[in-house]
């Protein structure tokens, strides 16, 4: 689905990511761990094609096509969708409007919104005055309308209270499963195993693993992928040893 080869990304002339190799196969959900400032968000922004995240080396392929130099909207049309951690507010553009932009039909909008308890926000300006949790719900809602094949989530659990985190986790599960309008029920194991979509989820704390089953995890440290492995094991490692362990790992790899 997504193959990244030897990617080097600069932001304002400074190298942020280097030697990134990453493959997310169809139907698999990958986790991206990493401390603050390790380049997690930059990697997602580069995959999405945002200006300011300049690919100076390597390439990004999606569905077998080299998308390294495609404009953002082309990538979106090919089936990449992203849930932003800190999306901009847009004055005068209603949540209802942006859902239609994402591809929802008039009669679907309210149904989608009720899935994530967001009906009362439909006539609010996008992200204007939204709390952390409201932003997440708005982002997930937009992805539901967009229905992409590769879903990029930038810290979907940050700023979300405990009560809502299962709602977010569940919405992510449905998105990954390819059902955007499902009833709000927990996915069964079998349903999870029939995922058709791919996901790449940034998490700082790992809380989201309590709700979303992931197939693989990568740790990004200092702009490089430090290790890859079982998500729960890696999370346990980070919880016990901290990211300091990654330095040793990186050093070993470089030897």
């Amino acid at each position: 689905m997504l193959i990244i080869e030897d990617l080097k990304v600069e932001v304002q002339g400074k190298t942020i990511l280097e030697h990134i190799d990453l493959e997310v196969p169809p139907g698999k959900t990958y986790i991206l761990f990493g401390p603050n400032g390790s380049g997690k968000t930059s990697l997602l922004m580069a995959i999405m094609g945002f200006s300011g995240y300049k690919v100076v080396k390597g390439k990004i392929c999606f569905k077998g096509e080299d998308i390294t130099n495609l404009p953002i909207n082309e990538r979106a049309r090919m089936g990449i969708g992203m849930s932003f951690q800190r999306p901009p507010s847009i004055d005068g553009v209603k949540v209802r409007d942006i859902l239609k932009i994402c591809g929802a039909k008039d009669d679907e909008v309210n149904e989608l919104a009720s899935n994530v308890h967001f009906l009362e926000f439909m006539d609010r300006d996008v992200n204007v005055g939204f709390s952390g949790g409201e932003i997440k719900r708005s982002e997930l809602l937009q992805l539901m309308a967009q229905s992409p094949d590769l879903l990029l989530f930038d810290e979907p659990e940050s700023g979300v209270d405990l009560e809502n985190i299962s709602l977010i986790g569940n919405a992510i599960n449905y998105l990954l499963k390819g059902i955007s309008q499902g009833k709000r029920e927990y996915c069964t194991y079998k349903e999870r195993s029939t995922r058709k979509r791919s996901g790449l989820i940034i998490t700082h704390t790992g809380h989201i693993l309590n709700y979303v089953d992931a197939d693989m995890a990568n740790v990004l440290y200092n702009g490089r992928i430090a290790c890859q492995g079982n998500p729960r094991e890696i999370l346990r490692g980070i919880s016990v040893h901290g990211y300091g362990e990654c330095i040793r790992c990186l050093n070993n790899c470089n030897k």
Binding site: F50, R75, G81, F84, I101, Q142
Partner: peptide
């Protein structure tokens, strides 16, 4: 770019 990421 946010709106472009939504397909515009």
């Amino acid at each position: 770019e946010y709106l472009m990421a939504r397909g515009l």
